[in-house]
Design a binder for these strands. Structure first.
Length: 494
RNA sequence: GCGCCCAUCGUCUAGCGGUCUAGGACGUCGCCCUUUCACGGCGAAAACAGGGGUUCGAGUCCCCUUGGGCGCGCCA
């Protein structure tokens, strides 16, 4: 089966899979999947010193978590060094490349001189036409491309349009280092060509590289693939995306409790649009994504919008799926193991029941877990400052009476507890809120929570009445106890 | 310094010469719903960087200025 479209994602494993890389991968994936094409994964590990196995694993994990699969086995660029050398040998033989014996010091001096004289720092081509017999003894040369001196090099970019460089501004780049290893510039061209890549979709920080790579393609007589250089993602202040901005690994987004579908949706709309549509299912993305709708200006990373999207996808998620996502998250967060144990110890059922109310109120999975704390907190509950303030003497006596009314309730459901509480409020001529808020404080330790009758129902009769008694009891013991409840072990800001 | 790219509400964007008194989304603010918080609904404030052209007509085309970004390695 032959594929007319072949894309590739080609990260260098020198750090984590950051958000910009994730978007590049997504675009490549979308383009290929929407056209019955292939998306290949190539690990550009030709920088043997900076490449790490941890980074390689992070790339695999990140892509997998994001739901971006690739075709075939990942290609390791380092394994193809022989092929790269072979190509350069052919270029040497064809006269499109040459040996350069200039030492690193010479090159450094060249750059410094150029800078002093206000010229761009470029290799001056001193070995380009020099007789190889003049080569200094014992110096291993680099192999350089014999690039055109005049004319222009043009890229017809799918998103940038026609971009041209005067060849006099481009120098003879190194193809093979003096130790015989290929440079990135050469390796990319050879690898893309050998596997039949038809579309190179990557960050526009590679735009100038595209010109140099075009020269290599031309020297080799190979067809240049279609190019699409997408604008980079910037930080909220417009500057380069830094760690504090969101240039985190995708693993960090997972740990923050974002859903992969939310991150995908957020990322696809960064730099690309389809009319006014904001929400895209994966299928919609695949079927509508195309290169002409990619903008040319850089986008800024906005956490608020990501959170909004994440909230949307959490609300839309089925409770079982959401529970699975939460459980999958646990290994990646602090206290995750502890929570996992509690899940196995009865919390899972409670959480599942509480999820409909919980997912409406959280923007991230971690926030949801935090808001679910009342489900697994031990008695007596720690009250946060507002909840504590809410439980005045009067409120505590209301709790006491409400607790009595509730103790009659059988069976214990949201509907029956609601009936009891409403009847009680009515008999005392109290607004429902005057009863509900103290109940909330006593049952959850907070002033905000899911609907109070759902809380009651999920907690169960015994636990609910217990929590109410914990707080109601304090009312009868005078102000001394009240000040004691204000001590550090019963009050927490969170 | 040189080369290249970019420029619509705070942010993501729609707009591809007239339908723009510039649309949507996030965020912000107000109102409604309501036991809290959310969700949801309704509404508001909020942008064509500046200057020249081209044209009957410019957010849309061209140039300049300004402001950002990327690149300029025997890194990728």
């Amino acid at each position: 089966m032959s594929h007319t479209i072949v894309t590739r994602f080609a990260p260098s494993p020198t750090g984590f899979l950051h958000i910009g890389g994730a978007r590049t991968a997504l675009f490549n994936w979308l383009y290929a999947r929407g056209r019955n094409g292939l998306m290949l994964l190539r690990i550009e590990d030709t920088d043997r010193e900076r490449s790490t196995q941890a980074a390689i694993d992070a790339i695999f994990d990140g892509l997998t978590w994001l739901g971006l699969d690739w075709d075939g086995e990942p290609i390791f660029q380092s394994a193809r060094a022989d092929r790269h050398r072979e190509v350069v040998e052919a270029m040497l033989a064809a006269g499109t490349a040459y040996r350069c014996y200039a030492s690193p010091q010479e090159l450094e001096e060249m750059r410094e001189a150029a800078y002093r004289e206000g010229r761009p720092p470029r290799y001056d081509g001193r070995w380009r036409d020099r007789d190889p017999r003049e080569a200094p003894a014992g110096v291993a040369p680099v192999i350089r491309l014999k690039a055109p001196l005049t004319g222009e090099t043009v890229i017809e970019d799918e998103v940038q349009g026609r971009v041209a460089w005067q060849n006099e501004h481009l120098d003879d780049l190194v193809l093979l280092r003096s130790d015989g290893t290929p440079t990135y510039m050469l390796a990319v061209v050879v690898d893309d060509h050998d596997v039949g890549v038809t579309h190179v979709i990557r960050g526009d920080d590679h735009l100038t590289n595209a010109a140099r790579q075009k020269q290599i393609y031309d020297a080799l007589g190979w067809q240049v693939p279609a190019m699409a250089h997408i604008p980079l993602i910037h930080g909220p202040d417009g500057s380069k995306l830094s760690k504090r901005h969101g240039a985190l690994g995708v693993d960090a987004y997972r740990a923050m409790g974002f859903l992969p579908e939310a991150l995908r949706n957020y990322l696809v709309r960064l730099g690309w649009s389809h009319g006014d549509q904001e929400i895209f299912s994966t299928e919609e993305m695949v079927s509508t994504f195309d290169l002409p709708q990619i903008g040319r200006s850089p986008a800024r990373f906005d956490f608020a919008k990501l959170e909004n999207l994440n909230g949307h996808y959490m609300r839309a998620a089925g409770d079982r799926d959401l529970l699975a996502a939460i459980e999958a998250l646990l290994p990646h967060i602090a206290d995750g193991a502890e929570l996992a144990a509690k899940l196995d110890n009865g919390l899972r059922e409670k959480l599942l029941l509480a999820l409909p109310g919980l997912k409406e109120r959280a923007k991230t999975l971690t926030e949801l877990i935090e808001q679910a704390r009342y489900l697994y907190a031990e008695r007596p509950l720690a009250l946060d400052r507002k909840a504590h303030a809410l439980l005045t003497e009067e409120a505590r006596s209301i709790l006491c009476e409400a607790g009595e009314a509730l103790s009659e309730v059988e069976p214990w459901t949201a509907a029956t507890t609601e009936g009891a509480v409403r009847r009680y409020a009515e008999t005392r001529s109290l607004k429902l809120g005057a009863v509900a808020q103290p109940l909330r404080a006593a049952l959850t330790g907070r002033t905000t929570s899911p609907g109070i009758f759902d809380v009651l129902a999920v907690l169960g009769k015994e636990e609910s009445l217990g929590r109410l008694a914990d707080q109601a009891g304090n009312a009868t013991q005078g102000s001394n106890t009240l000040s004691r409840t204000a001590s550090a072990d019963t009050i927490s800001e969170n």
